[in-house]
Structures are given as C-alpha cells and as structure tokens.
Design a protein around this nucleic acid. Structure first.
Lengths: 76, 76
DNA sequence: CTGTGACTGTCAGTCCGTG
DNA sequence: GCACGGACTGACAGTCACA
C-alpha cells in the first residue's frame, strides 16, 4: 500500500467528517467538546493530517451522531 | 468513554475479523501475508490486544475481501 | 498454526500559542 | 471560527524469540 493511497483514504475521511459536522451546523470546537478531543485534533483530522485509531474513529462518529459505517460510506 | 467500553469495541472488532477470516478459510499467517502485516499483529488483533489505526483497518478489510463498513457491521 | 511479552522508533493526541 | 506551528507524553506499529 502506497503513501499516496493512505493519504487518499485520510482525505476521504477528512471530507466525510467535515461534511457531517457542517450538516450538524456546529464548530470544530463544539465537536471536539462532544467527542472529548482537543480542538486542534479535529482540525488536523479535517485536514487529513492524522490517522486516527479505531477507538477514536468510534468517538468521532458518536460526536457526529452517526453510525461509524455510515460515516465511512458517506458520499463525498 | 470508559476503558471497558473501549475494550468491548475491540472485542467486537476482534471477533468480526476472526469470523471473516474463518469464512475465507485461511490462516492468520495467510491473512497477514495478504495484508502485509506480521502474523503476530493479526494474532493480537484477533485477541483484541491492539487498537488499530484507520489505515490498518482498511488494510485488514482489504485482506479480508470485505468492505470496511461491512466488516464493522458484521453480526457476532 | 497460534499465543504471548517485550522491545524500539514513530506517531497520535494535548496544550501552548500565532495570524 | 479556523489553519497552523512547536513541544511534550503516551500510545501504537512492527518485529522478535519462545512456547
């Protein structure tokens, strides 16, 4: 698996997270608060700068009030 | 989010991975080879000893020839 | 064929700040 | 409200020898 491929996956995830957050009409800070994360971490995720763990993916999806599989299959 | 909750999530993931691997009727070693992982890493995942990253989750699902959201929503 | 513990380097995730 | 940076600690990746 190539580096660009990984980055592409992170990009898609980033877009999905951002898209869903905007649907909820909340700020990164607010989402961070809901998830129990630092605001800068959310920022990094939405810029595809981080590769979150499975557990954190679950936390994010909870904060976004969406099932994790729905989050991952969100059309971009 | 409590520690037991996280462990529960990892347990479910572990079971799903193992179940799917057995469906394919391949060994941990064989799966490891398909994913590009060490066989002991697969072993750890199936024993819920590791909290894999998003990228590694994708790799696993590819090795298991299943969509990641299908893997996560596999009935245990 | 798989379980297990231990290990090292890298990265995740936080906390401080800036424009 | 967000992007972005540096510095820090803990967690994960990836491997090994052994059972």
């Amino acid at each position: 698996m190539k580096k660009e491929e990984k980055q592409l996956l992170l990009n898609n995830l980033a877009i999905s997270i951002k898209k869903r957050r905007l649907q909820l009409n909340i700020s990164q800070e607010k989402l961070a608060e809901k998830c129990g994360f630092d605001r800068t971490y959310i920022s990094m995720l939405e810029r595809a700068k981080r590769n979150p763990s499975f557990i954190n993916l679950v936390k994010i999806s909870k904060g976004l009030e969406i099932e994790i599989n729905d989050l991952l299959s969100l059309e971009n």
